[in-house]
């Protein structure tokens, strides 16, 4: 494994499989235990450096680090020196001086974790950067798929929604294809990046055409504000053409699952009855997130520093 996890492309097939296997072993090791804590990272310091509010991702990382007995420092942009204009580099050097072994970073600018990795000795884990990537989300999605369907190789995954602005979509495209899944992106053309043709995916504008052959449908959050920039005419039209409702869910194969990275816009990209159905893995995804992030922290921070 590389020292940092900055994007899904940092993981080859063996690495990605190791993360998923490790997460499974951790989950098994902790199952049913009263003491859900392991001493593995005792004495290590993990900093959660969050420039964007994301309570659920931060809590997931925090829980993962604490279950491995790491010391956790939450450093959020609000109310800190960051909001007084301290540069990313100065913040990095500060964390370095404090002896951070791992830095989990969420930032609004694509590539910010890559820059950070240049300035610190500890491992950097990308917890979402701009419209670039969110690799641990993709890992937990892959974990969830494998858990529910028993495999990833050859699994047909349909990713629906605002691919253009989605770091979750980018990470999933690269990770899932590394792991042998067949990814199809479905979105209005305005919400697909120019250059998507170079990705290892199929592209469709027609959700109804791809659903009958999908093993997994992954719905992306779509912000209603996008319609102000004419990415689509209205929330209603978006929902009609690209939303997953009960009628569409009914044409899925029997064992197909429905995923969503959260937070959901119920009634926009996903109907409530779909989100709450037995096909939905949305709650599993949250729980799996902790196991997968424990695996990532263990594999990156557990060993010898370089």
């Amino acid at each position: 494994m590389k020292r940092h996890l900055l994007e899904a492309g940092d993981l080859d097939r063996d690495d990605a499989t190791l993360v998923l296997d490790t997460a499974a072993q951790i989950e098994q090791a902790l199952a049913g235990r009263e003491v859900k804590k392991l001493p593995t990272l005792r004495g290590r310091t993990v900093v959660n450096l969050f420039y964007e509010d994301s309570t659920r991702t931060r809590i997931s990382f925090e829980l993962a680090a604490k279950r491995l007995s790491a010391d956790v420092i939450n450093f959020s942009a609000k109310g800190s020196s960051v909001s007084k204009g301290e540069s990313l580099k100065d913040t990095a050097l500060t964390l370095e001086a404090m002896g951070a072994d791992g830095i989990v970073v969420r930032h609004g600018a694509s590539g910010a974790p890559h820059r950070l990795a240049h300035w610190v000795r500890g491992s950097v884990v990308n917890a979402g950067d701009g419209t670039h990537e969110h690799p641990t989300q993709a890992l937990l999605d892959a974990y969830t798929i494998r858990q529910r369907l028993g495999r990833l190789d050859g699994v047909r995954v349909v990713v629906v929604g605002d691919v253009l602005h989605s770091r979750v979509a980018r990470s999933n495209v690269w990770l899932l294809s590394t792991l042998g899944a067949e990814v199809t992106l479905v979105a209005p053309p305005t919400l697909l990046p120019v250059g998507v043709g170079s990705w290892p995916v199929q592209v469709s504008y027609d959700l109804d055409a791809v659903l009958p052959k999908a093993d997994v449908v992954m719905m992306l959050r779509v912000q209603a504000e996008r319609m102000n920039a004419s990415f689509f005419p209205s929330a209603r039209e978006y929902s009609r053409r690209y939303g997953l409702d009960a009628r569409r869910m009914a044409v899925l194969p029997d064992d197909a699952i429905v995923m969503h990275p959260g937070p959901m816009n119920r009634g926009m990209e996903i109907a409530a009855e779909v989100a709450d159905s037995a096909r939905s893995t949305i709650v599993d995804q949250v729980g799996n997130g902790v196991s997968v992030r424990m695996a990532v922290l263990y594999l990156l921070l557990g060993g010898a520093p370089e």
Binding site: G130, R170, V194, G195, W199
Partner: peptide, 18 residues
């Protein structure tokens, strides 16, 4: 816009300059 719009901007998640 942050960089040339094309294959690389798509992957890097940087807004494209067409």
């Amino acid at each position: 816009a942050q960089m040339n719009e094309g294959d690389r901007s798509a992957r890097l998640g940087l807004t494209g300059w067409p």
